[in-house]
Amino acid sequence: MLSPVTDPDGAPFWQYAAQGELRVQACAACGEPRFPPRPCCPHCQSFASEWRRVSGHGRIWSYVVPHPPLLPDYAEQAPYNVVVVELTDAPRIRLVGNLVTGPDAPLNSLPPDRIRIGAKVHAVFSGTGLPQWVLERP
């Protein structure tokens, strides 16, 4: 499985995720959250930023179900789902992830026909530090 190849802007996201916290970068001057992280605020151009904790609640914005040809580790689990989750606290922050049955469950643990756009989900954290998503009403 691929691990995040991170950069200085993204590293704090993964450090917090490894501690089981979902945080997004926000401007320390005007307060606007932004994703993906970047050096300065596109609204007010401030270089001051903070990592704001979010509730981890969201809704499915869209999803796909990839089938082979895929990289071997992923092909083994295909078909699996990849979702985009819109955060309740910051609707324009949308995170890519996997909808699973519980922490550390495989990518294909939830049947694709259980997934609906608009479904409420919340974040859980895998042992590898990757945020995952589970249905609020399984």
Binding site: L2, V5, G10, P36, V64, P66, L71, V82, N98
Partner: peptide, 18 residues
């Protein structure tokens, strides 16, 4: 590339078609 692949590829969003 670190940006923005870190936000997508680990989850299996691998190809342009995905």
């Amino acid at each position: 590339l670190p940006t923005p692949a870190q936000w997508t590829r680990p989850y299996g969003l691998l190809r342009p078609v995905d």
